[in-house]
Nucleic acid binder design. Structure first.
Lengths: 215, 215
DNA sequence: TCAGACAAGAGGGTAAACCCTGAATTTAGC
DNA sequence: GCTAAATTCAGGGTTTACCCTCTTGTCTGA
């Protein structure tokens, strides 16, 4: 029986190479593609040759990240089953990836056995979801939060700019100077974001910004 | 000739396990310890048995991070040569780690050959530095930070507990209730940490705590 | 045994953050 | 061209955060 072919798309070469030697110890899998980012991977695919059956896709990559690459793969090479590999268990990221067409979402802190299980699951059922991801999907169906915008918060105008600055040690007065606004306008942005993100004070803003990689 | 023993301290199990299978393909090295964080590793060492010769140390870990662990290792188990493994090439992080006693600093996006080279270098010369790190060391000759405490931050007593709470939306009054202290004592912890972490306000505390995986 | 670090706390002041209401523009959708 | 949303700003209030100095008791190393 021929082995199932796997592609590894990850800019952390050491991790990628380590992962390769791990996967090559699995009886039924072999690594047929390796790429440092989505752009490189797409070019490899367009170069011809047998497509991989599964793609292990890192999320944070330069040039073309995991989310973008997955969306493109789903259109142009729908036979490739994408398994997302990520450092963080942020619910929004998971939901976005699933929506982009990923067949599963794995954290980088899992046990190798789980990886094998996920590979088998994707080949057998077409998808693989851990309990964590399942929970996220459930949450995404009926928003628990009293903030209706929480699942897809969009920042308008200079809100994002303000949010980044609010996550520094600057006072609002200083932020106003930097943004070339009156302190009262800055007050307005602050109160607006308090409501939007459902937080009580500036600490809440900073925590949100950092955990969502905005600051 | 007996193989050189290596410890892997990393909370990303998949990476750790992958790395293990990679290292076990190297002729002269074998993995003798695996731990999810610094705390676990220290407990393993104290449990007795032959110490590892080299420790591959992740930076961002829960409970006891790479910097803290390295500092402790240097005091209590100075024979263990620490090689830092990190995602980012932030100059300050590199300098801090070298000062804490790391014998080298590797990025996770390196080629496996470099890892082997680094292991060999550490065993042969006692250290291994890439060009990147060497540049940082040159820069570090004229101090970047004005805070003399920055290199080895140790949290005493309930400082860590306070720091976690200060990274929430609680007021200091509420924090005092939770910690069963007077608000004035909480004031004291705050001002103490301002100096220690060289920040100006609570936002600085929260940013530090989150970025160092303490909150 | 005595300095020095650590933990807990007090008094009292200024500055910043927070919260509310209201309102003038400009921009975008129908 | 009307409306709604977004952007900008004001007045004025309360609360919290920040900063400084000082005290008390405990524990520890030289």
């Amino acid at each position: 029986m021929p082995k199932t072919t796997v592609a590894i798309i990850d800019d952390h070469t050491l991790f990628a190479q380590s992962l390769k030697s791990l996967i090559n110890t699995f009886d039924n899998y072999t690594v047929s593609y390796e790429a440092q980012n989505g752009k490189v991977f797409l070019n490899q695919l367009k170069g011809g040759g047998a497509l991989p059956e599964i793609a292990l896709m890192d999320m944070n990559m330069p040039i073309l990240n995991g989310l973008e690459t997955t969306a493109i793969l789903n259109k142009e090479f729908p036979s490739i089953k994408v398994l997302a590999l990520s450092m963080d268990d942020d619910e929004n990221s998971i939901i976005k990836m699933i929506r982009a067409g990923a067949k599963g979402y794995l954290l980088k802190d899992i046990h190798p056995d789980i990886l094998l299980e996920a590979l088998n699951g994707v080949m057998r059922d077409g998808f693989y979801h851990t309990k964590l991801v399942s929970n996220s999907l459930v949450h995404s169906l009926h928003p628990i939060s009293d903030n209706p915008n929480e699942t897809s918060i969009e920042f308008l105008g200079r809100e994002l700019e303000f949010l980044k600055l609010a996550s520094t040690e600057m006072t609002y007065k200083e932020i106003a100077v930097v943004m070339n606004l009156s302190p009262k306008t800055v007050d307005g942005y602050r109160d607006q974001l308090f409501k939007k993100l459902n937080v009580k004070n500036r600490i809440g803003l900073a925590v949100y910004a950092i955990k969502n990689n905005l600051a």
